[in-house]
């Protein structure tokens, strides 16, 4: 970590939290890397938007959340689901289009759901999930529940009107929302500077009388702290806030390959960010401070690898949905509740 331990106010960060943080980042990284390995088999027949390089964000945020808190995400949502507590089996099975998938094979990797863990569905329309997230927060506010909603979106979603409409409403009604922008500088291959007049996303919070910060999205502890602030504010009735976290995706927009070979982005840029690998940063932090021993980290990795093996086997062994599923779930059965 580039900052001193004291800056983070580490007394509030227990050894367990730090280890959990590292373990979750590994979990996401290894899960995504396994997809990279398996994808060429062409058995996973859906587009995959990998979040390798961005693991600190989902991890740092979700460690502040309770099971019942809501998380809304986007097309790049594997990490958010894992960090919020989703099991690997239903996720992997969904990517394989199997009936045991979290969406029974009807969603694919862009449409993850885990109602028990507060994930009410994930939109692949850029910014499309943002209003819905605010709506879920409105529901908890009307019901006077002590629930926070975190909405993850990219710098691309910042271009969309839906964000502003939603932010204004959330602020107007002081809803318990955290708007979390993962600024990886690109929307597909289009750089932020080609799309935005002012590349200062967090500044726009002030236009909605809300709180905005810009942080290093590759520093899990910094993310954790910023999210803690915003989550606490939301929970205490202080309304929404906006966190912009700068980060970088290592792979291409979609699929398992790096995209610099295709000329999408400069290779130097990728190298720069790979040196700031969030998992490596965290690992060095906990090792250098003797928070954990090297062999413990090995055990963590081994256990995650075993879990991934199991999830892949589960997914591959599972059945495809029966063809009779084609026309089910279009409508909810009508039940007169009165």
């Amino acid at each position: 970590m580039k900052e001193d331990i004291l800056k983070y106010g580490l007394p509030t960060l227990t050894r367990k939290t730090l280890i959990d943080m590292y373990a979750m980042m590994c979990r996401i990284r290894m899960f995504e890397e396994r997809i990279v390995d398996l994808y060429p088999e062409q058995e996973m027949k859906c587009p995959v938007h990998l979040c390798i390089g961005q693991e600190a964000i989902a991890t740092g945020v979700c460690l502040n959340l309770r099971k019942e808190d809501y998380v809304f995400s986007n097309h790049r949502g594997h990490g958010h689901a894992l960090a919020k507590g989703s099991a690997m089996r239903p996720l992997m099975a969904e990517f394989y289009g199997k009936a045991t998938g979290c969406s029974r094979g009807k969603g694919g990797s862009m449409h993850i759901i885990d109602v028990e863990n507060g994930i009410l569905g994930t939109s692949a329309i850029v910014a499309g999930g943002i209003p819905m997230g605010v709506g879920a927060a409105l529901a908890s506010s009307i019901r006077k529940e002590d629930r926070v909603t975190v909405i993850f979106f990219g710098d691309g979603a910042y271009d969309e009107g839906a964000l502003y409409e939603s932010f204004n409403f959330a602020s107007l009604k002081k809803l318990p929302v955290v708007f979390f922008c993962e600024n990886n500088f690109y929307a597909t291959n289009s750089h932020q500077s080609a799309r935005q007049s002012a590349c200062r996303i967090s500044d726009s919070a002030s236009a909605f009388d809300s709180h905005g910060v810009c942080i290093d999205g590759n520093d899990a502890i910094e993310v954790y702290k910023a999210a803690q602030d915003s989550v606490n504010r939301a929970r205490k009735g202080g309304g929404p806030s906006l966190i912009e976290a700068k980060t970088y995706r290592w792979k291409g927009h979609v699929g398992p390959d790096a995209d610099y070979e295709k000329g999408c982005r400069p290779k130097e840029e990728l190298i720069y960010w790979m040196e700031r690998c969030p998992v490596k940063v965290m690992r060095e932090f906990i090792l250098s401070r003797n928070i954990v021993a090297e062999n413990e980290l090995k055990e963590i990795a081994a256990s995650i690898a075993g879990e991934i093996d199991d999830a892949v086997k589960f997914a591959k062994d599972s059945e495809y949905p029966p063809l009779s599923d084609l026309l089910t779930d279009v409508y909810a059965p009508v039940k007169e509740t009165l």
């Binding site: 809501y70 809304f72 009410l120 569905g121 499309g128 943002i130 209003p131 819905m132 997230g133 605010v134 709506g135 879920a136 927060a137 409105l138 529901a139 908890s140 009307i142 009107g161 839906a162 502003y164 409409e165 939603s166 204004n168 409403f169």
Partner: peptide, 12 residues
């Protein structure tokens, strides 16, 4: 936005 808000509330 508000249609989305209402949809999100419905899902919730």
């Amino acid at each position: 936005g508000i249609t989305g808000v209402a949809i999100g509330a419905a899902v919730a």
